[in-house]
C-alpha cells in the first residue's frame, strides 16, 4: 500500500503584488522502503512541498489546497491536534541547519527524552536508556556521556546525527529530509548519507529526500521528481532520469554539472536564471531558458504527461528530448 500520496498540492503565499504561487499542482507517491528524491533549485518549491506534507506551514499566511494522504488518511483536513499527533509520530523530519533545528538551551539528551516521555509516556530512566541507544545508533562515540552535552558542543556532522536520532526516535514510517547534507563537508556528507541508508534498510521506512545535489540523488534515490517553478517537470526512476532525461531542464542540469571522475572541455550552461515565483512566464515556465522552445511552449502550459515505462515529462517536445538523450 502507498505510504504517502500527494495529489494536486498547491501552496500560495500572499505577496505585495498578488499571491506568490510556490507550489502549483504537485502529485507524487512514496511507498514503504522507497527513497523518492525531489530535485530542484532554490525557489522551485521543493522545500515548501515538504513543509506542507510535514504540516509546519502556518495557514494563514500560506494557502494550501489539494490532498496529502498518509496510509490513505487525508492529513490536510484533519483538526490541528490530530494532525500534530500524526506528523509527530509517523513522520520524522531532518533539516539542513541542525543548529537552528535543535534547542540551544537544552542538552541533546533532554530533547530526545522529552519526545519519548510526552509521546510514549516513558519514565525518566527508560527514556534516558532509549536516548543513549538512539545516540549510539547514529554512531556517536561515548553516547552515554554525550547526551549530557548541548548542541553547540557537537560538530556539524554530529549535530546532523543528533537530529536524525531525534527524527527516528518514535520509529516513523516516513522520513522527510530537507537538504540533510548540504551544509556538510563531502567526507562527512558521505557518512551521513550512509547512515540514513542503513537506518532505512533496517526500519523499512519511506524516505522523501529534498535536495539540489544531483550527485546525492544518483547515489541514494530509487525514484526522482524534478521540480521547476513549483511544478514537477519530470518524474521517473533514477536510471531513467540520469541515463536519458525526457525534459530539457533535466537535460541541461546534467550537462551543466562538472564531473570529478573525468574532465569535460566545456560545460553546457543553461542561460538565464530560475523565474521569480511571483511572476511566472506564460506557457511553459522553462521556455525562456530552453533551447527547444517553440511558439507552443510560449503559450500553452505542458501538462505532466505519462510516458511508456511509467515515467512522466511536462514538455511539449519530450519525444525529441528523449531521442537526443537516450543512450
Amino acid at each position: 500500500m502507498t505510504l504517502l500520496e500527494i495529489d494536486d498540492l498547491r501552496v500560495a503565499f500572499p505577496g505585495p503584488s498578488g499571491p506568490v504561487n510556490a507550489v502549483n499542482g504537485v502529485s507524487l507517491k512514496v511507498d514503504p522502503g522507497q527513497t523518492l528524491a525531489i530535485l530542484g533549485e532554490s525557489g522551485s518549491g521543493k522545500s515548501v512541498t515538504a513543509q506542507a506534507v510535514m504540516g509546519i506551514l502556518d495557514t494563514p499566511p500560506a494557502r494550501i489546497s489539494g490532498a496529502v494522504r498518509l496510509h490513505g488518511r487525508e492529513l490536510l483536513t484533519l483538526p490541528r491536534k490530530q494532525r500534530d499527533r500524526i506528523s509527530g509520530e509517523e513522520i520524522g523530519m531532518v533539516f539542513q541547519d541542525a543548529m537552528a533545528a535543535l534547542n540551544p538551551v537544552f542538552t541533546v539528551g533532554h530533547q530526545i527524552m522529552e519526545v519519548l516521555r510526552v509521546r510514549r509516556g516513558m519514565s525518566r530512566a527508560d527514556a534516558r536508556r532509549r536516548a543513549v541507544e538512539l545516540v549510539d545508533r547514529v554512531r556517536i562515540p561515548a553516547a552515554k556521556d554525550r547526551i549530557r552535552d548541548y548542541p553547540h558542543q557537537f560538530s556539524g556532522g554530529m549535530r546532523q546525527r543528533i537530529m536524525i536520532a531525534l527524527a527516528i526516535c518514535l520509529e516513523p514510517d516516513l522520513l522527510i529530509a530537507d537538504e540533510p547534507t548540504t551544509a556538510l563537508d563531502v567526507t562527512v556528507q558521505a557518512q551521513v548519507m550512509e547512515l540514513l541508508a542503513e537506518i532505512q534498510r533496517d526500519s523499512g521506512m519511506g524516505l522523501l529526500l529534498i535536495t539540489h545535489d544531483l550527485g546525492v540523488v544518483a547515489e541514494v534515490a530509487d525514484d526522482v521528481a524534478v521540480m521547476y517553478a513549483g511544478r514537477i517537470v519530470e518524474r521517473g526512476t533514477v536510471e531513467q532520469i540520469f541515463d536519458g532525461p525526457a525534459h530539457p531542464y533535466t537535460e541541461g542540469l546534467l550537462a551543466s554539472m562538472p564531473r570529478v571522475d573525468r574532465r569535460d572541455d566545456v560545460l553546457y550552461a543553461i542561460p538565464g536564471a530560475p523565474p521569480n515565483p511571483a511572476r511566472l512566464p506564460a506557457g511553459c515556465p522553462f521556455h525562456l531558458r530552453c533551447p527547444r522552445a517553440t511558439d507552443e511552449c510560449r503559450t500553452v502550459l505542458p501538462p505532466l504527461e505519462v510516458l511508456p515505462a511509467n515515467r512522466a515529462s511536462a514538455c511539449h517536445h519530450h519525444e525529441e528530448v528523449l531521442g537526443a538523450t537516450r543512450r
Binding site: V186, T187, Q189, A190, Q191, M193, E194, D213, L214, G215, V216, V217, A218, E219, A221, V238, E239, F242, D243, L254, M257, R259, V260, D261
Partner: peptide
Amino acid sequence: AVPVPEPAGRGQRQRIL
C-alpha cells in the same frame, strides 16, 4: 566521497569512509 551522477555504478564504486 564525492557522489558521481551515474546511478548505474552505484554500489560498485570503492568508497573510503
